[in-house]
Amino acid sequence: MVKLIIPVSKPEEGAAGLTGIWRSFKPIIDQEKCKHCLMCWLYCPEGAIERIGEDKLTVKINYDYCKGCGICADICPFKAITMVREE
């Protein structure tokens, strides 16, 4: 096949590097309060919230890429996510 240099890129995890470094506030999920509604997963603009567990209903934040925008904490109907200042 002919090799062509064309400006095409595919979405992939970490394409912009470890954007977790951008964060000044860190979202912390209180799993006790979480009702597994998945609103945070739906709203996260970075796709940095993962669904884990057998039923894929438990949410986990990937801090390598979470930029700390706080949308998850804002949208959570059960106030289960708090923003904590980074060290």
Binding site: T19, I21, W22, R23, S24, K67, G68
Partner: peptide
Amino acid sequence: GAERRGAP
């Protein structure tokens, strides 16, 4: 570049 608040 394409930096935003918080980015290096």
